[in-house]
Computed example of a mutant assay.
Amino acid sequence: MKVALLAILGLFLGALGGAALGIGAGLAWVEIAQTTSFEGYSGMLVFLTFMPLGAAIGGAGGAALFAVLAMRDDAIAIERAPAAEPARSQD
C-alpha cells in the first residue's frame, strides 16, 4: 500500500514539475525557432503540445522514481530485535 501511495504522489508531483518544465521548454522553442505568433499559434504550441508532453513524461518518471524508492526502502530497512527485558532483582 505504501508503494502505491508513493507512486501516486510521484505521479502528481512529477506531472506538475514536468508541466512546468514543458512550458519552459516550449517558450524556449518559440524563441529559438522564431515561431509565428499569428492568432496565438505560439501559445497554442506551448500549452497544447509541450506542456502535456512534459506532464506525461514527468508523471511517468516521478511515479517510477517514487515507486522504486518505496520498494527499495522496504528491502533495505532492518528491523531491530525486541529489547530484552531487564533482569528482575530477587527480594
Rank of each mutant, 00 (worst) to 15 (best):
M1T: 12
K2C: 06
V3A: 11
L5M: 12
L6S: 09
I8G: 09
L9R: 09
L9V: 12
G10P: 01
L11Y: 12
F12D: 00
F12Q: 03
L13C: 08
G14M: 02
G14C: 04
G14V: 10
G14Q: 00
A15L: 12
A15V: 08
L16C: 13
G17N: 12
G18P: 00
A19T: 04
A20W: 00
L21C: 10
G22P: 00
I23C: 03
G24R: 04
A25F: 00
G26A: 12
L27T: 04
L27Q: 15
L27C: 08
A28K: 00
A28D: 04
W29V: 04
W29N: 06
W29T: 04
V30E: 05
E31Q: 12
A33N: 06
A33F: 12
S37C: 10
F38R: 07
F38N: 06
G40V: 08
Y41Q: 11
S42M: 03
G43L: 14
G43M: 13
M44A: 11
M44H: 10
L45P: 00
L45W: 06
T49W: 07
L53M: 12
G54S: 08
A56F: 09
A56N: 03
A56L: 15
G62T: 10
A64K: 08
A64V: 14
F66V: 03
A67H: 02
A70R: 02
M71F: 14
R72V: 14
D73V: 00
I76A: 09
I78K: 12
R80L: 09
A81D: 05
P82M: 11
A83F: 13
P86K: 13
A87F: 14
R88V: 01
D91E: 12
D91Y: 13
